[in-house]
Amino acid sequence: MTTVEPTAVLIKANFDQECVHLARDLHHDGGIKSVIVRPVPVILHELEYYERIARRTEAANPPGLADDFTAWVRTG
C-alpha cells in the first residue's frame, strides 16, 4: 500500500457517506418530489454494480423505493 492509499480510502468512504446523506435529505425535504413530481430512487453507483452499491442505494432511499434496482444488482 502506498502512503497515499489510506488517505484515498478515507476520502472515498467519506464521499460515499455524504452522497447517502444528501440523497436522504433530498427525499426527506421533498426536493426530489417537488422537481420530478413523485418519489424516485437515487442510485449511488460506480462503473460496476455489486453488493456495496446495493446497500448504499438502499441507505440513500426510503424503504422499498430502490427495491427493483437492488434486486437486479443482487441477481446479476
Rank of each mutant, 00 (worst) to 15 (best):
G76M: 12
T70E: 09
A66V: 02
Y50K: 15
V35S: 11
S34P: 04
A8R: 13
V42W: 04
D68G: 09
P39R: 13
F69G: 02
D16I: 02
G31P: 06
D67W: 07
T7N: 07
L26W: 12
A71C: 11
V37E: 13
N61L: 01
A60F: 01
A8D: 04
C19P: 00
C19E: 11
Y49A: 14
T70P: 03
K12V: 03
N14L: 15
V42E: 06
L10Q: 13
D68C: 05
R56Q: 08
A71W: 05
A13T: 11
I32W: 01
C19F: 14
P41C: 06
T3A: 12
P63A: 09
H28I: 11
F69L: 05
T7D: 03
I32C: 04
T57W: 09
V9K: 14
V42R: 13
A59Y: 02
D68Q: 10
A66R: 04
R38F: 14
T7E: 10
P39V: 02
H21I: 06
K33H: 09
H21N: 11
C19T: 04
Q17Y: 13
P39A: 07
P39K: 15
R55W: 00
I36R: 07
E46G: 10
R52K: 13
P39Q: 15
I43M: 09
D29I: 08
D67C: 02
S34N: 10
Y49P: 00
S34Q: 11
R56L: 11
H27C: 01
N14Y: 03
V40F: 07
V37M: 15
L47E: 14
N61I: 02
P6W: 01
G31E: 09
T57E: 03
H28T: 15
S34I: 02
A60T: 05
R56E: 04
V37A: 15
D25E: 12
E48D: 15
H21T: 04
P39L: 06
I11T: 06
